[in-house]
Amino acid sequence: MLYKEFKESIKSLGFNTMEDFIKYAGVTSDEVLDWEDKNQVPYIVSLVLHLLKGEKELPSTSSLDNVVEECLPLATLLDEASSFPHKLEEMFLLQKKLNDSTNGKNWELGINKFGKEINWLRCIHMEVAELIESTPWKHWKNINSEPDMNNIHVELVDIWHFLMSYILQETNVPKAVSLVNTHCIYEAVTEVDVKFMMTEAEKLSYIALAIDTGNMPSFSGVERFIDQFFRCCKISGLSFMWLQKLYIGKNCLNQFRQDHGYKEGTYIKQWNGKEDNVVMVDILEKMDDVSFDDLYSKLEDAYNSCK
């Protein structure tokens, strides 16, 4: 608002003199002199005047519009973040249920119901290798190929399964949620630097190996793991909301595999020329709200069609 418009506005509101307005608004005469000198009244003062006049159209400013535009993604993220503790609790409970089902009730002790040793750290290490295999890292083969970002995201979800299991081995569900919650608030990148992503993903392996070889205390390792994992999600373009959706999908698929002979070696992993992971993601993308039971039913239909 220009200073001339400002003077006209305060008169229309019933202020006889500038001193009357100064007394009412609580500003100083020096401030008003500065406005006159610059011939520009602060936006907040213009806004107050328009509100007092009851005008529907408020003054606009490009700088304010830019601030609002920049803040909208953050506001959306913070709004989503209010549901994160519930989503985390749901995921940790589903993971515990899956582990109880496949490994037996006392899997946290490191042995499954068949007497086989459980090593979540090695699982994470191996999944990181699979993630890297989804990138054109080889200098001797397919050097110009594009990274398979969909599969990279699926591999991150696999790592999340094993990381959650490792966290649950060290603590309980409420503590796990509180450890992870603040790390979930991030804005995933839209332009992925593949080389940088690989370097950061490899650090998950380093942490796993450091703990497994006794070079890093287990509990401090958990905190390092959580921080590094969500860093990897962020720089690979995987939002927490899509991570959660993919997790429900992969958890459901893992249970489906167990129910259909995965451990016994009779499960069919290729469904009509597509790996089951790919089919699961295709189904997820068509679902607005992901329900474990609904997804399980859709997987059953797809699996039966490939026999």
Rank of each mutant, 00 (worst) to 15 (best):
Met1Thr: 07
Leu2Thr: 11
Lys4His: 03
Ile10Thr: 04
Ile10Val: 10
Lys11Val: 10
Ser12His: 05
Leu13Asn: 05
Gly14Met: 03
Gly14Val: 01
Asn16Ser: 12
Thr17Gln: 09
Lys23Cys: 06
Tyr24Gly: 05
Gly26Ala: 10
Trp35Tyr: 02
Asn39Ile: 12
Gln40Met: 10
Val41Asp: 06
Val41His: 09
Pro42His: 05
Ile44Phe: 14
His50Ile: 05
Leu51Val: 11
Lys53Tyr: 03
Glu57His: 06
Ser60Gln: 04
Asp65Lys: 11
Asp65Ser: 14
Val67Glu: 06
Ala75Lys: 14
Ala75Tyr: 11
Ala75Phe: 11
Thr76Gln: 13
Leu78His: 09
Glu80Pro: 03
Ala81Asp: 01
Phe84Lys: 10
His86Ala: 15
Leu88Met: 15
Glu90Val: 14
Glu90Asp: 15
Leu93Val: 14
Leu98Tyr: 02
Ser101Thr: 08
Thr102Asp: 03
Asn103Glu: 07
Trp107Asn: 04
Gly110Cys: 08
Asn112Pro: 04
Glu117Cys: 03
Asn119Arg: 04
Arg122Lys: 12
Cys123Leu: 10
Cys123Gln: 07
Glu133Thr: 02
Pro136Gly: 02
His139Arg: 06
Trp140Met: 03
Ile143Asp: 09
Ser145Leu: 04
Met149Ile: 15
Leu156Asp: 06
Leu156Glu: 02
Val157Cys: 14
Asp158His: 10
Ile159Thr: 01
Phe162Ala: 01
Leu163Val: 04
Tyr166Leu: 12
Ile167Met: 00
Ile167Asn: 02
Val177Arg: 06
Asn181Trp: 13
His183Arg: 09
Ala188Ile: 04
Ala188Lys: 00
Ala188Phe: 00
Asp193Arg: 02
Glu202Asp: 08
Glu202Lys: 07
Ile207Ser: 05
Ile211Met: 04
Ile211Tyr: 00
Pro217Glu: 11
Ser218His: 05
Ser218Tyr: 03
Arg224Gly: 01
Arg224Asn: 10
Asp227Met: 10
Asp227Asn: 11
Cys232Thr: 02
Gly237Cys: 13
Leu246Ala: 14
Asn251Lys: 07
Leu253Ser: 11
Gln258Ala: 15
Lys269Gly: 06
Lys269Thr: 03
Lys269His: 12
Trp271Asn: 11
Asn277Gln: 07
Asn277Arg: 08
Val281Thr: 10
Asp282Ser: 14
Asp282Val: 07
Leu284Ala: 14
Lys286Ser: 15
Asp288Arg: 13
Phe292Gln: 06
Ser297Pro: 02
Leu299Cys: 12
Ala302Phe: 14
Ala302Glu: 15
